[in-house]
Design a protein around this nucleic acid. Structure first.
Lengths: 349, 349
DNA sequence: CTGTTAGCGCTTTCAT
DNA sequence: ATGAAAGCGCTAACAG
């Protein structure tokens, strides 16, 4: 609570008996303008003793670089919160934070609805780069592009070489998941996802699903396509409905792990066995996929890694204009929720 | 990519034909120095047309206020990441972000090991307040206290009225959980948690557990106390061991939902029924508590709310020195993992 | 009601 | 090898 004014570079200079310029050089280890080693270390020692802490705002003003990276996480329109809670975001944030920190940056995270104009914020704060997670309306992206600040899009499906992009090959993921089911002998495979309205990961996963079906000479049927909110409970209800109303599918490709979990529980509580009666494969390999019984077979993406890569791309983008477009690998991990097609259903369960 | 220099307040002033002071006043709606409404709106119009965006660094320098709140999230020493991924943090962040944003602030989030000195960062960035989640060594807290920046501690158990604090009454929560089990007729109740080494939520929950036992005339037994990492898989292994080696308990109070989930699955896969053979109650009411079968009875804390409150306290702290110490309510929510003591075990399962 | 001016703390030519 | 000085963009006295 002492009103001790913070020590500035001027104070250090005076105490060290040199000019502020020299002090600045010494403190920043500027070697081009070679100060004598003795003065340099003397100045640094004095600064240390005085508890000098540089003022980043001042530096930012001159250098026009804030060492701050903006991170945008989607929000639901309703609560202004919910999406934020998705463990997916915590995980990707984790990766972003570590890599940026190790590079001397900090992250400013905002949950932003598509309507707000983030571009202002980005400019006011002189953000060095912005990492945007998820899909946004083009107006939103246009605004921020105008700022000239490097932007890294994560999991977006937009055609615009003004942006760097990091994502996974969701279409291939959809293919792999479906293929896994096919190889287990299933031929009637349902697809479950959010209402696929606009370009995004779900659409891609659906396309991959169709690709696989066609590659195996099968025809995608609309009757085998289910839509449902990305929510545990809604998926559970869906499963109950499916059991109640009957379904010719013998396997389900569910485009998100949370939904897969709900579906599985819905089946089980309706007396249907997984994977004996229905095989279910999810997508993402969220932590919860291995915390259920049975554990969920899924298409694994390394989410933390995605964050790390996005951060690295941002770091690069600050130094170079060259746009990067990175696609991360995806692999099927087989666990307990998928199994070979059994004859059980045929024989009249 | 046009090298159009950003328009500054000086540019606006010139274009509007007034001084920078007037411009500043107009733009900031300063009413004390009453400018004519006509000039004011004229200036604002010009600024808008020119696409003027204020520079926060400049403002920060003068006002010594950055409109930035630091948020510190714990990290494991090993990966420098893991704790960050805990859904708990995503949820609390969600709350913090929303209310800070609504108050015109932004958050800078860092995952910080106890050894790093965050106080420097806080000073360099002129953070207006810092929200610290979890328990940290006192050296860490001392450093940051020195800065004079308002600090809000969340879920910390430290005696220091230099800090604002937000937490739940974990001891009472421990009491409630145990009481719930007692009321169901259980008398031999085990306590499972992390190794309780130092002051923190787990210790408090344990104390609450003892309180309840004593209140019911029972004696806490060391044999009924289990320690285990806060991890799904480790808890699952623990359950298997418990079943293998036998255990006289008929109910378990587990100090975290993730562990409760692991324990339950471990029991089930060992052929032991929950809640018929063992009742299990968790703590936190994480989303996963209602996404399991059976759903987990637990002690609910509203985590998002905790974040919101912490943020509000931070907002207040910026304006007033008066320290706040807030304790959020806790309630037992009974779900499927706890039930009345059955005679099943007695009769020799 | 509006303009002049002195910085905030720091970096960076340009001299010396 | 070091110093003087000119700002970066903005706010806040202080004058008028």
């Amino acid at each position: 609570m002492d009103m001790k004014k913070r020590v500035s570079i001027k104070d250090v200079a005076k105490a060290a008996g040199v000019s502020v310029a020299t002090t600045s050089y010494a403190l920043n280890h500027v070697k081009s303008s070679r100060i004598s080693d003795s003065t340099a270390s003397h100045v640094r020692e004095v600064a240390r003793r005085m508890g000098y802490v540089p003022n980043l705002s001042a530096r930012t003003m001159i250098k026009r670089k804030s060492q701050l990276i903006g991170v945008i996480i989607p929000q639901t329109g309703t609560t202004n919160e919910m999406d934020y809670r998705n463990p997916f975001y915590a995980e990707i944030l984790s990766g972003i934070e570590r890599v940026t920190r190790e590079n001397g940056y900090h992250i400013m995270v905002s949950g932003t609805g598509p309507n707000q104009d983030y571009s202002n914020i980005a400019q006011m704060r002189q953000l060095d780069a912005v990492i945007i997670i998820g899909t946004y309306p083009s107006k939103f992206l246009d605004d921020i592009r105008q700022t000239g600040i490097p932007v890294v899009l994560v999991d977006a499906y937009v055609e615009d070489d003004a942006f760097h992009q990091v994502r996974t090959n969701d279409r291939q993921g959809g293919y792999l998941a479906t293929e896994h089911l096919l190889e287990l002998g299933h031929r009637s495979i349902a697809f479950v996802s959010d209402a696929v309205r606009f370009p995004g990961v779900f659409e891609q996963r659906y396309l991959g699903y169709r690709d696989a079906l066609k590659a195996w000479g099968l025809v995608p049927e609309d009757a085998l396509r289910y839509e449902c909110n990305v929510s545990y409970i809604d998926s559970l209800r869906l499963a109950e409905r499916i059991v109640r109303e009957g379904c010719k599918a013998d396997a389900f490709f569910v485009a998100a792990d949370v939904m897969a979990l709900g579906l599985i529980h819905g089946f089980i509580s309706s007396g249907v066995h997984v994977p004996e009666d229905y095989s279910v494969i999810g997508f993402d390999d969220m932590i919860l996929a291995s915390m259920s019984m049975p554990q969920i077979s899924t298409v694994r993406q390394d989410i933390t890694r995605k964050g790390e890569v996005a951060a690295q791309v941002a770091m690069d983008a600050i130094k170079s204009d060259e746009k990067q477009y990175i696609c991360l690998p995806l692999t099927v991990v087989q666990r307990g929720s998928t199994g070979p097609k059994s004859s059980r259903k045929e024989t009249g369960l």
